[in-house]
């Protein structure tokens, strides 16, 4: 089946069976490799994307369900994501970096949904994303700092 996917505001036509997980359509067919494979069963969050603003594990979401929707990946840009990029950079957050696409997408969703997240909000929002290198404490700090930046900017 031919599908037109809108990824970060740009249309990509892919030829895929309807049950193909969106992750592989994004990576192997649309050629955007920033979204990562980690587990294939929605356990690690490396493949996180936003679909119409909803946080989705793209390894467990069919490509056919993503048509006529706006897909947002780590290659995209939003005001919130830019604040997070800055504080990720300031805090030298990543180690191997592989999970950070998913971490940043999950954090983008959190900041878009909650104005001033507490530690508990961060725990709830970020516990679907595994970092094997163990950068959690830095991610937590970077989220708090991004919130401060964002609120000062308003």
């Amino acid at each position: 089946m031919k599908y037109t996917l809108s990824i970060n505001g740009k249309n990509h036509t892919v030829d895929a069976p309807e049950e193909m997980p969106l992750l592989w359509a994004i990576r192997d067919l649309a050629g955007l490799t920033g979204t990562k494979y980690g587990c294939g069963i929605a356990q690690c969050g490396a493949c996180s994307v936003l679909i119409d603003g909803r946080l989705v594990k793209s390894c467990s979401f069919s490509v056919s369900d993503a048509i006529n929707k706006e897909i947002f990946t780590i290659e995209g840009s939003s005001e919130t994501l830019e604040f997070l990029r800055q504080t990720w950079n300031d805090g030298n957050v990543p180690q191997c970096g592989y999970c950070q696409s998913g971490q940043l997408i999950a954090a983008t969703k959190l900041l878009d949904a909650v104005e001033k997240p507490t530690d508990k909000d961060i725990d709830d929002a970020m516990s679907g994303n595994i970092c094997r290198c163990g950068t959690y404490t830095r991610i937590r700090k970077a989220i708090h700092k991004a919130v401060a930046l964002k609120n000062n900017a308003i």
Binding site: G34, W88, N89, Y98, Q100
Partner: peptide, 29 residues
């Protein structure tokens, strides 16, 4: 001193290339 990773920009923009991201024309999986 405290130096940041040289790959930070790529890590935060999805442009860091890992083995799994390597691509060649006509490649198979």
């Amino acid at each position: 001193k405290n130096l940041k990773s040289v790959d930070l920009h790529d890590f935060t923009h999805g442009t860091a290339i890992y083995g799994i991201d390597a691509r060649l024309p006509n490649m198979k999986f």
